[in-house]
């Protein structure tokens, strides 16, 4: 038991921030990659999700194809497709595993977020849009100032869920050896047969780390949501 704890204690800093003398990795890298991908993914999801509701058929079709494509593929496959396809010899981009991982995560999460954006935009009550139109607002004004503002409130919990889900999905990046938590766990065990006894305890710790971060994030989001909804005018209108 004590040798297990000693092993875990020795490896804990590696799991959290990566190995010394290497680039930062471990849990910190998992978090950074997930947050960046969700942020950039939102920028992609906004036009794609709005495109799903476009009056033009081709736009609707393209947006739907984008969503079905990147939601229909396993992330583990998307990673290799980006790394070998975009980063391969034929396409000519020389992507590092980290860059490929970031691109694949962004494509993956943007498809899920686009569906959230669509649902959020659809939740905006029609009378609100009609009144804005009657007051003389232009289409873009209505979109940015009314539809999106309202929809963001509706979308918020789903976005948090998607971000947490993507954070857990970063574990798949181990197939590219990106250096995030799962990769450091595998490297910590290495191929040393004497470490075989530590597999269970190390993966329990890794699971615990993922779980603690996910639970803390959802708790914090809920707390923030509760505090904000009590003072938010748009939200009280939405739930009236």
């Amino acid at each position: 038991m004590s040798d297990h704890l000693a092993f875990l204690w020795r490896q804990l800093p590696n799991l959290l921030v990566g190995f010394p003398q290497q680039r930062p990795g471990g849990l910190v890298l998992s978090l950074v990659l997930a947050v960046l991908a969700v942020g950039v993914g939102f920028a992609v999801a906004l036009p794609v999700g709005s495109g799903r509701l476009s009056p033009r058929r081709t736009v609707r079709g393209l947006a739907l194809a984008y969503i079905e494509l990147f939601r229909g593929l396993p992330l583990i496959l998307l990673l290799l497709l980006v790394h070998q396809g975009l980063g391969g010899r034929r396409f000519g981009l020389d992507l590092s595993p980290r860059q490929s991982a970031f691109i694949a995560l962004t494509l993956y999460t943007s498809a899920y977020q686009a569906e959230i954006v669509r649902a959020g935009l659809q939740a905006v009550p029609q009378p609100m849009l009609d009144s804005a139109r009657l007051l003389g607002a232009s289409t873009w004004q209505i979109f940015w100032r009314i539809q999106l503002r309202y929809a963001l409130r509706v979308m918020w919990p789903a976005f948090v869920g998607q971000a947490i889900s993507l954070f857990k999905d970063t574990s798949v990046l181990v197939v590219l050896g990106v250096g995030e938590l799962m990769t450091t766990a595998r490297a910590a065990l290495g191929s040393d047969i004497r470490n075989a006894a530590y597999w269970v305890s190390l993966y329990l710790l890794v699971g615990l780390l993922y779980m603690v971060v996910a639970l803390l994030a959802s708790q914090a989001a809920r707390r923030w949501e509760q505090r904000r909804t009590s003072t938010d005018l748009v939200h009280s209108l939405a739930n009236a």
Partner: peptide, 23 residues
């Protein structure tokens, strides 16, 4: 629910397939 939802699927898969027998 909280345990198996908040641990990534890959960690669960590796844990049961590779780690558990080593215990």
């Amino acid at each position: 629910v909280e345990t198996f939802r908040n641990i990534p699927a890959l960690v669960l898969v590796v844990f049961f397939a590779f780690a558990l027998p080593n215990a």
